[in-house]
Design a protein around this nucleic acid. Structure first.
Lengths: 335, 335
DNA sequence: GGCTCTCGCTTAACCGGTTAATCATAGGGG
DNA sequence: CCCCTATGATTAACCGGTTAAGCGAGAGCC
């Protein structure tokens, strides 16, 4: 059943040349006579030869594969979230085009965190990408110090100088909140994201800056980006200030939770309370009412990360340390 | 910057033993004296030795990694879909526990399809898992014939005898439709899934069988599992039979589309029309009204696939050719 | 005491490629 | 005609592990 896989040696014998020559042909070296190249290719074809990556990696020190680290345990990732799938989609497309393999790793527990480090350090991959992580994770910095190409999605917290790709959280939020102010809203609250993530911190900063600029009072509640936490936070905000007339919510998921809470509390949206989210997930086009939100180009982030990493790996010059992609206010019906 | 990675040789020198002995200690062989084992472990520790997987694979013919093939181009996967993320979650968790790596591959285009085959055949992975594919894809069968361990999610169409994990589509749908019948519904339509996928075919079969059994007329429209297609199909069904009083929708996404279409058409749910979906995605708990649906344990499917594949790889005996997981009717408010 | 057996380590072959160094051959110049 | 060079192939070393076979020493047995 298991057909013995032909080796370079076999191809060489069949083509009547040496291993080295076959290797050269397979790797597209130019200095091989056309007739020989022809013969080798025929032999490759006939035997169905495919090079053994392990053997190749052993000598080239390259694996042609790249890790994407998701900073949650496998059980939590993807539960309610549309962020990681989109990142994967962007990364995957770009790597496929470059003929690299995508190795997915979850790094939630301390144990798996360790595993990831060992894996990367062991040279199983040519480079590592981190998807938006929590807190000041030392791992990216560690890997960089070891000379492993790394790119993060989301500006890393902490001192480590790690290349990253992020979106303009601050600018996007400012635009959104200003939109509320311009529309005459005066009691504008926010449901912020976790304050151990840049996405949470920067979006809250944008809210604060804009309200300060407008001379309005701030009402803040913190969520964890889940729908459930959005509901809870919205209820608390309504307790805090029953007369609030707008809320900027730092993620679409939480915004959906907020919408539910508002409906339960008998508020009309946007009549009584305007709502703006952040993300622009697909589902937000279908919420009731359709959600006004700040679009961040997640797939594009994935693509950009991959491109940057590939650049680093091939050490192309002029690799920017950071790329910040623009966000865009998408106006639908909630504000 | 790039610290030279220590090799077995280096560890052996430091510990004052031979390469072979170090190898044995590293791989946990028992027949090594405690004192030597001690010394070797110390050397490993001090040097920060991590074995080189390429070298190891070369001789063991094992890569400790496993491919998950997603049968869409990277651009389409994950767009609106919550199925693949859940599969990944299940698979990822199980593989992590087994210390295997997950290699993600998209196989949409013919070109990438080829790439996947070459990759698997080249022995880059110890086994391959296919996530629900379209039509009668020959690839799984091909790989099986080459002796590569394969497991599919979703019973494969066609003759190939490939181990698979699936859910009880038919039974689940029968239960759901029977629920509608029992509730007194008499004009029960369905929005079926694509008829080139088992999930689409079997669910339609369940609908047909149950209605036949109940002696009721069948109204069928086909969608492609997207929300949009659900909306369109629902409108068509209402054209077909404005008086229909229930609809079984073969996926939650399409059900959400159908809900929108029903609302637009002025139908109350479940008053005028009862709706039952299939999947039980997270979002279905939050639709308006919350969706009654057939739950399929997607994460568990992923886990089971991974377990089966690991069993095959370690050629444990008694590997079932097929595992069919149960589905469960989750009654909320739409029926 | 000598023989055999066992235990535990070392030696060395091998996995399947890449590539630097080497060598054969044909062509060109003097 | 001979020597030199360019071209293009081959030889062989190496990547970093695993593991079968070999071997030395201590224990058990008669």
């Amino acid at each position: 059943m298991i057909r013995e896989r032909p080796t370079l040696e076999a191809v060489a014998r069949r083509a009547g040349v040496s291993r080295a020559t076959v290797s050269r042909v397979v790797n597209g070296s130019t200095s091989v006579a056309a007739s020989i190249r022809e013969a080798v290719n025929r032999a490759v074809e006939e035997l169905g030869y495919v090079p053994n990556q392990a053997a190749r990696s052993l000598v080239t020190q390259r694996t042609e594969s790249i890790a994407l680290i998701l900073p949650e345990t496998a059980n939590r990732v993807f539960s309610d979230d549309l962020f990681f799938p989109a990142i994967i989609r962007g990364v995957g497309g770009e790597l496929e085009a470059a003929d690299k393999q995508l190795v997915l790793m979850m790094a939630g527990s301390a144990k798996s965190h360790d595993r990831v480090e060992r894996y990367a350090v062991a040279g199983h991959v040519d480079g590592v990408m981190f998807a938006s992580m929590h807190g000041a994770d030392p791992l990216p910095g560690t890997l960089v110090r070891l000379g492993i190409p790394v790119v993060c999605s989301g500006r890393p917290i902490g001192a480590a100088a790690v290349p990253y790709v992020d979106v303009d959280h601050f600018g996007g939020v400012c635009g959104a909140v200003r939109h509320l102010v311009t529309a005459g809203r005066r009691r504008i609250a926010t449901i912020a994201g976790p304050q151990d993530m840049v996405a949470g911190i920067d979006r809250l900063a944008g809210y604060r800056a804009t309200l300060e600029e407008a001379g309005l009072a701030q009402h803040v509640r913190i969520g964890d980006f889940t729908r459930e936490s959005g509901m809870v936070a919205m209820r608390k905000l309504l307790d805090d200030d029953p007369a609030l007339d707008a809320v900027f919510v730092a993620s679409d998921m939480m915004a959906h939770g907020a919408l539910t809470a508002l409906k339960d509390a008998g508020r009309r949206v946007p009549g009584d309370v305007a709502v703006i989210g952040f993300d622009d997930f697909e589902i937000s086009r279908y919420s009731e009412p359709p959600l006004t939100t700040v679009r961040q180009p997640i797939v594009e982030m994935g693509r950009t990360m991959a491109r940057q990493l590939l650049g680093l790996i091939n050490d192309e010059p002029h690799q920017p340390d950071a790329v910040v992609l623009p966000t865009e206010l998408v106006i639908r019906e909630t504000a």
